[in-house]
Simulated assay, not measured.
Amino acid sequence: MSIKKYHIRIFVKENYLIGSKMNLKKRHIILPLTLLLTNCIIVSARAELSLGTGIIALNTPYKDYDMQTTPFPVINYKGDNFWINGLGAGYYLFNDATDKLSIIGYYDPTQFKHDDSDSREMRRLLTRKGTMMAGLSYVHKTRYGSLRAALAGDVLDNSDGMVVDMAWLYRYENGSFTITPAIGFKWNSDNQNDYYYGVSKYESKRSGIKTYTPDASINPYAELSVSYEFLSNWNIYGVGRWTRLSDEITDSPMVEDSWDSILSMGITYTF
């Protein structure tokens, strides 16, 4: 197995959850992906594998809602046909030095736990869960940077929404230090926004918060990834994304901030 460095970049919004009470439909989606992942790790002799631990800090725009932090195991894998990157995984449909097209699956950690709110009214709203997303991703590399694009939809029937994420990245390396700034935007479908920021008539009656049904939105963001390799095989990293929320989201009575952010950091060992 190669001992080349493969530093992790976490793309806001990903991990894997397989609950004991998951229904049969969901297991039909998750279990084949798990078997494919296991098979690819075993058979690919030229793969690069990094393992470690990390933490995600999610700062959502909900009213009277504290930052949520979650520790998680880091698995970073790169093979000829299959990859894992932070909280997501993919299978290459096309892969060369310039262009990469993948089928992807990732966990979107966006969520609202009503019990975590300090607002009496917000506590009477329903919980919004994180969800598993699946779709396609495309990366085009040039000497001036890379275009990254993804189209994905909810496969766990939580939001039934879709998202499009597109960004331009520039990677700079100086010895063991790597920094990658990016600018981009994320489009949320109306279903996606309605699940996370809408207020139904039922919730309005329970909480006294006015009803709200948002449309689709476009949300620009800035992203920064940094990593540092030390002792040959160890790597520490940090990834942050800051998103300017559109009026469709900030007009929600659930929301009090015009920005949300996510920060991930951790340490990995490359085998």
Rank of each mutant, 00 (worst) to 15 (best):
S2T: 15
V12W: 08
L17S: 14
G19A: 14
M22V: 09
L24K: 12
K25Y: 03
K26M: 10
H28M: 08
I30E: 06
L31F: 01
L31V: 03
L31A: 08
L31H: 00
P32W: 01
T34Q: 10
T38G: 11
N39C: 08
L49N: 03
N59A: 14
P61M: 10
P61K: 04
D64T: 07
Q68L: 11
Q68A: 03
F72E: 12
N76D: 15
N81G: 13
N85T: 15
L87N: 09
G88D: 05
A97F: 05
K100F: 14
S102N: 04
S102M: 11
Y107Q: 12
P109G: 02
S119G: 09
E121C: 02
R123A: 11
L125K: 05
M132Q: 10
H140C: 08
Y144H: 07
S146F: 04
S146L: 00
L156W: 07
D157W: 02
G161E: 02
L169S: 11
F177N: 11
T180M: 11
P181K: 00
P181Y: 04
A182N: 01
F185A: 11
F185Q: 04
S189A: 06
D190S: 14
D194Q: 14
Y202D: 15
E203F: 01
S207A: 11
S207M: 05
G208Q: 03
I209C: 06
T211P: 06
Y212F: 10
I218Q: 03
N219F: 00
Y221F: 14
F230Q: 12
F230V: 10
F230L: 09
L231D: 13
N233T: 03
N233A: 15
W234D: 14
W234G: 13
Y237P: 14
G238W: 01
V239N: 15
E248A: 15
T250C: 10
D251N: 15
S252W: 07
P253D: 01
I262V: 06
M265L: 05
M265I: 09
